[in-house]
Amino acid sequence: MIPAQFDYVAPTSVDEALAALAERGDDAKVIAGGQSLLPVLRMRLNAPEVVIDIGRIDALRGIRDDGDAIVIGATTTHAEVGASSLVYDNAALVTKAVEHLADAQIRHRGTFGGALAHADPAGDLGAPALALGAQFVIAGTGGTRTVGADEFFVDLFETAIGDGELLTEVRIPKHTGWGAHYEKFVRVAHQWPIVAVAATVKADGGTISEARVGLTNMGSTPLRATAVEQALVGQPATEDAVRQAAAAAAEGTNPPSDLNGDRDYRRHLATVLTRRAVLAAAGG
């Protein structure tokens, strides 16, 4: 389908982009990879007057090592994130989640920052970002601020990014040596998860010393399964022990009902997938 007509600007710096945003206000929409925005425009669910393409701002793209964190530029593509050994070595959970995100074509265009800014509760990157305690760097005309993952996701398709602001980069604290697994449950391969569980654990000699568990599509935002995380500490990485801890996975969740499953089914899935994700993460 054909989107309504819009103006197009392609700034080459963050300042220019912010200026364009400030100037056009509510009439503007940022486009990164376009993999979520273009369907919206094509189905005419939204008709901005101007589209600001941030894809040509070099400063927003790339992955770097910054001491105790790795930093992923907002317009770095899913494919680039997936292929990065820096990401894999220090935040393997992200690599695992990106591996099964959409399909190869979409991973080639869609961006890390775009997916997080879009804040689809079924998006694959929110739960890992939350589990890893990612920090979101947001720029506005007044300067730059950093928001933690627990504050970043506000609601369905809503984040802490304010009017006239841009997500510039995501800082992910290093989890070097942690095992990681992203357990995504789908009916067909190229699908958003019905439910997914992002788990990363630190295990010493078969005992779990720390665990982080994020849930995808179990509420209007990505969720942390804190009860599970706490229950896992000090437990052996065995089927029985992990099963017991994972039983609390659906606590405090509020999953949707849709064509792929009702909320009770999703709650059930969350416990099963949490067990599987944690065991797989602990196993390697």
Binding site: L21, D26, A28, K29, V30, S36, L37, P39, V40, M43, L45, N46, P48, I52, A117, H118, A119, D120, A122, V154, L156, F157, E158, T159, I161, D163, G164, E165, L166, W192, P256, S257, D258, L259, N260, D262
Partner: peptide, 16 residues
């Protein structure tokens, strides 16, 4: 239930 997943909701957040 008769509802689809709303991946392309017009309410979507982001910059604006």
């Amino acid at each position: 239930a008769g509802a689809a997943m709303p991946h392309f909701d017009e309410q979507e957040g982001g910059a604006q």
